[in-house]
Amino acid sequence: MITVVGEALADLIAAADGRTFTAHPGGSPANVALGLTRLGTASVLGTRLGDDLFGTLVRTHLTDAGVDVRPLPAPTSDTSVAFAATDAAGVARYDFRITWDITALPPLDGAECLHTGSLATLLEPGARVVEAAMRTERTVSYDPNVRPSLSGTPAEERPRVERQVALSDVVKVSEEDLGWLYPGEDPVERAVRWLALGPSLVVVTLGADGAHAVTGNHATTRPGPPTTVVDTVGAGDAFTAGLLHWLSRAGLLSGNHTAIASVTGRSLENAVDFANAVAAITCSRAGANPPTLAELGAARSLLP
């Protein structure tokens, strides 16, 4: 079982006219929890949700899929909202109306891994509660999922992100995030630098070009499968869910953290290929709508 901590919200996605919006359940950590459960890995989501209309939409969507949703204590209770618009390539940009003021996390008893990131590790006062939990003895997975509209300057954000990378065992980051944090740097070279901070595995997603993964022993760049992109909403979260599901199936998340670092080159390729396949299907449909294991077809043969 994997415990995910972070925001759950309503994504209001603009139609081509820019005036009509469709509501989809969203939030990066919530999308990861949903993706894990659809793939067959049990997940607990510690989050902040209200009892309003959007809260009901998001909660029902997650619980119907089998996610164990655990509302976290907070002094306010309205459900957060993100407005999203996509460009001609289906790439989304966001405008957030979000509060993250949680005061405690769910117990981690029974969890093989804690996954977090995105706004949950950025927005105070809740971010300091989450970062404290990242100091657990359990495996920690982290996706910074940078949101420039809610962040300071890259120079201001780099120390926080690097501190949280150092607390993590598995790090997934997009090349867009690295491009914002480290303008002009090669994302593959930055992945190696991040690995030196302490993680056992760093993966950089490269959009249509797939993903690059690096451990202390191996590095590989794997192409993504061809797909017709509807939008990229939730694609990175789907990749994370696929990667964590693969690592869980391989028995690499629980116990000795060095097991992730010692994964073979072929196994690392399979893990990234599987995560790429999960993300590709998500890109082929609207909103954060990750696939079930049955929908992955031949990609299931990549699982350990």
Rank of each mutant, 00 (worst) to 15 (best):
L195P: 01
R193N: 01
E175Q: 14
L108F: 05
A89Q: 15
P199A: 05
R160V: 10
I102N: 03
G152L: 08
V171W: 04
A104S: 13
A166I: 04
W100H: 03
V165L: 10
A191K: 06
Y94T: 01
G117D: 01
L181H: 00
A127K: 04
V146Q: 08
A120R: 04
E176W: 00
A92K: 09
E124T: 08
R158L: 14
E189Y: 04
C113W: 13
L123Y: 11
V171Y: 04
W100L: 13
Y142A: 00
V192S: 11
R97L: 14
A89T: 10
F96R: 13
T116R: 10
R193Y: 04
S141P: 06
E112D: 12
L119Q: 06
L119P: 02
V91M: 10
T116V: 12
Y182T: 00
W100D: 02
P106M: 14
L195I: 00
L114Y: 15
T121E: 09
T99R: 15
A111W: 01
R163T: 09
G126D: 07
D186L: 07
S168R: 11
L108H: 02
A166E: 12
A191M: 05
C113E: 08
R93G: 06
V173E: 11
K172M: 05
V140P: 00
P125A: 12
L197A: 12
E175W: 08
T116K: 11
A196Q: 15
V91L: 14
D186W: 10
E189F: 04
V192Q: 14
F96E: 14
V91C: 06
D95G: 09
T136K: 00
H115Y: 15
G184D: 05
A133T: 03
P187L: 11
D177I: 05
G117L: 06
N145F: 10
L108N: 03
C113T: 06
A155Q: 15
W180G: 02
A127C: 07
V146T: 08
D95I: 12
P106T: 08
E112T: 11
R190M: 15
S168M: 13
R160I: 10
S174C: 01
V161Q: 08
R190A: 14
V188H: 05
E162W: 04
V171Q: 10
L123C: 08
R147E: 09
L114C: 03
D186V: 05
V91P: 00
G90E: 12
L105Y: 02
P148G: 08
S118M: 09
T116Q: 09
V129Y: 05
E162S: 10
P183D: 09
G110L: 04
P154L: 06
M134T: 09
Q164E: 13
T136F: 03
I98Q: 04
E137K: 13
